[in-house]
C-alpha cells in the first residue's frame, strides 16, 4: 500500500472473501472480513484462521470455501493457538527450505470466541509473540447460537439469555474492555476500528496490523441486524452512531503509545445509538430513564479515560 489511502485503488484488487457464503443478508462480519483482507498486498499470500462462529459455518460449508487463500478452522476456543501453529510451521518449513515467500497469518473470531471462550488461547498466543494478526469481529453476543449474552454484550442489552421481563432488564454487567486488556499484553499493535465512511480507518489499521511484525490485535465493531434488531440496510448508520456517540471509539496503540483516530465533531448522546436497536427498546419505556442516564455516564467515563491515555 502506498502511504495515501485510495479507496478506488483498493476496491479494484481481486476480492479475497468471495460471494456465495451464507452469512445473513446485511451481516457486518462479511463487511469486516472482506475489509481486513483487502488490506493485504495483492501479491502476498495469507492463511486465514477462523474460530467456530457465524463466519465459519457460513464461509466454509463443505464443499464451498469463500476464501481465495488457505483457510483453517479447528474449534471455537482455540483460533489464536491455531494461528500460532500455522505460523510455527511456516517458521520451521522456511528454515528447512520447504516454503518460500511471505505468508501472512490472520485469525477471525467473534466476540464469544475472543472475549470469552477463546480468551486464554488469545492471551497465550499474544504473549508468545507469534507474527500474526488476531481480528475480533465484535457483534456483542453469541449470534451463531441465537443471540446469547457474552462478556462483550453491553449493559442493558436484551439477549436470549438476558431477556427483558417483569424483573429482568437485559444484561446486568458492562461490556468487558478487551482492547485495553490486549494493550496490557505489550504487543506491537492494538487497534479498535469499525466499518465506516470510506473505510480508511479500518483499512489503514488492518494494514498496520498485517504488516507490523509480531502479534497484533484488531477489535472491529461488526453490527448484527438480527441480534441488534435493526433494519439490515442500516449497517453504516448504526456503525457511525456507535462511533459518534463514543460508544465505540476509534483508536490505536502502537508500541504502547495511544493515538485517538477520530474525535466526533459533535459527540452525540448515547440514546441516538440505542434508539434504533430493538435490543435496547426497553430502555425507552417510561420509568427506565435511569438506564439511559447510566449508560451515558458509563460511555462518558470510558471516553474521558481514553482521552487521558491518548493525550498523555
Amino acid at each position: 500500500m502506498s502511504k495515501i489511502y485510495n479507496l478506488k485503488r483498493e476496491v479494484e484488487k481481486p476480492v479475497r472473501l468471495t460471494g456465495g457464503h451464507r452469512l445473513c443478508a446485511g451481516c457486518g462480519a462479511g463487511v469486516v472480513v472482506s475489509g481486513v483482507l483487502r488490506a493485504l498486498d495483492k501479491e502476498d499470500r495469507a492463511v486465514v484462521v477462523n474460530a467456530t462462529s457465524c463466519l465459519e459455518v457460513s464461509t466454509f460449508m463443505y464443499p464451498y470455501t469463500a476464501y481465495m487463500d488457505s483457510y483453517i478452522h479447528s474449534a471455537f476456543e482455540n483460533s489464536a493457538a491455531t494461528c500460532s501453529g500455522v505460523e510455527a510451521a511456516y517458521n520451521a518449513l522456511k528454515r528447512r527450505g520447504k516454503v518460500d515467500g511471505a505468508v501472512k497469518f490472520i485469525t477471525f473470531a467473534g466476540d464469544g470466541g475472543t472475549y470469552d471462550i477463546g480468551f486464554q488461547s488469545l492471551s497465550g498466543a499474544m504473549e508468545r509473540g507469534h507474527d500474526m494478526v488476531y481480528v475480533c469481529y465484535d457483534n456483542e453476543a453469541y449470534m451463531n447460537t441465537g443471540i446469547q449474552r457474552s462478556s462483550s454484550t453491553p449493559r442493558f442489552a436484551g439477549t436470549t439469555t438476558t431477556p427483558i421481563g417483569s424483573v429482568g432488564q437485559g444484561k446486568k454487567q458492562n461490556k468487558k474492555d478487551l482492547t485495553e486488556i490486549l494493550v496490557a499484553h505489550n504487543i506491537p499493535y492494538v487497534a479498535q476500528t469499525a466499518p465506516i465512511g470510506n473505510f480508511k480507518d479500518l483499512h489503514t489499521k488492518a494494514y498496520n496490523a498485517i504488516y507490523t511484525e509480531g502479534p497484533c490485535f484488531l477489535n472491529v465493531l461488526s453490527p448484527c441486524p438480527r441480534g441488534w434488531d435493526y433494519p439490515m440496510a442500516k449497517l453504516a448508520e448504526i456503525t457511525k452512531l456507535a462511533v459518534d456517540t463514543c460508544v465505540w471509539p476509534l483508536f490505536e496503540v502502537e508500541e504502547g503509545v495511544w493515538h485517538l483516530s477520530y474525535t466526533p465533531k459533535k459527540k452525540l448522546p448515547v440514546e441516538d445509538f440505542l434508539r434504533p436497536q430493538g435490543r435496547f427498546r426497553h430502555m425507552f419505556q417510561k420509568g427506565n430513564e435511569w438506564m439511559i442516564k447510566e449508560a451515558q455516564q458509563y460511555v462518558d467515563q470510558k471516553w474521558e479515560r481514553l482521552l487521558e491515555h491518548t493525550s498523555a
Partner: peptide, 17 residues
C-alpha cells in the same frame, strides 16, 4: 503453549500447514 488444549491446537494447525 499455555495449555494442552493449545498444544494440540498448535499441532493440528502446524500439521495442516
Amino acid at each position: 503453549v499455555e495449555s494442552e488444549h493449545s498444544s494440540m491446537s498448535v499441532c493440528i494447525a502446524a500439521q495442516a500447514a
